[in-house]
Design a protein around this nucleic acid. Sequence first.
DNA 1: TTCCATGCAAAGCGTTTGCACACAC
DNA 2: GTGTGTGCAAACGCTTTGCATGGAA
Lengths: 131, 131
Amino acid sequence: MPTLKYSRQRASIKEYLDGTVEHPTADMVYMKVKKQFPSISLGTVYRNLNLLADMGEIRKLSTPDGGDRFDANLTPHYHVVCSSCGKVYDIMLPEESIRHINESADACFDGDIVSHDTLFYGICEHCKKGK
Amino acid sequence: MPTLKYSRQRASIKEYLDGTVEHPTADMVYMKVKKQFPSISLGTVYRNLNLLADMGEIRKLSTPDGGDRFDANLTPHYHVVCSSCGKVYDIMLPEESIRHINESADACFDGDIVSHDTLFYGICEHCKKGK
DNA sequence: TTCCATGCAAAGCGTTTGCACACAC
DNA sequence: GTGTGTGCAAACGCTTTGCATGGAA
C-alpha cells in the first residue's frame, strides 16, 4: 500500500468534520472547504473522505436518499435518519440498551452484527410539527 | 390522484416478489420479469416497484451499495445487510426485543422512530467463512 | 373514447476514475 | 528525484422522466 503523505486539503476536511455536529454530505464538505481552497475539486473531497473512512478516522453513513454522510464522532452511538427531510441525528442509547439490541440481533442472525452501524429511521420533531 | 388500472407487468412483478425470499434489486426483478414479457423496460419495472411501495404492498429497502432492494414480506421484521457481499437478510426478532428497542430509541430521539425500517449491518456467515 | 401504463431513450444525481501536473518528502 | 495528491473532466451505476404509443375500462 502507498505511503500516506500530508495534504492541506485533507487536513481541512478532517478539521471541518471534527468541528461540526451535523452529518454533512460530500457536497456540503466541498462547499465548506472550497472557502479555504477555492480550487479544490469534488473528486478530491470524495477521495479524501473515503480515505479517512478507510483509515477509521471518520464514519461514512449510507442514507436512503442517495447521498452518503460523514461523521467524525467515533464514540459508540447510533443514527436516525428522518424519512421526511433526510437529516441524520445522533442517538445516544444507554449502554445497556445497546447490549440488549446486539444480543437480540446476534441471536437471530447467522453471522456477526456490526453494532454501531445500525441505522434507525424516523420522523424528526421538526418534520412532525411542519405537517 | 389517478385511478389505478390493471397491468400484466405489475401483476407479474408483484407475483415474483411474493414468491421469493430474496430481496431482489430492481435489475433482478427486471431480468426475471423479462422472461415473461421480453419487451418490458427497466423504467416500467422501477415505476411499478415504486407504485407498489407507495401503496404499501411491498417494502423498499435502501442499502449502502447503491441499489435499492424490494421485499413483499410485510410481516414485522428487520433486515441485516452484509457489509461484505451486500446481501440482505431477514431477521425475526422476538416481539419483546422489538418493543425494547423501540422504547429505548424513542426515549433518546426527539421525534418518532419508524420501527420496522431499522437496518442492521453485519457480516454474514457465508462471508465469514470465505475469509 | 378516455386515461392510465408502457417502451424507449435521454437526462439526473451522486460517486468514481484516468490523466497530466503539482507538491510532500 | 520519487511517488503521492490534486484538479479537471469524463465516465459510471442506479434511478427518474418526457414523450409518443398501446391497452384497460
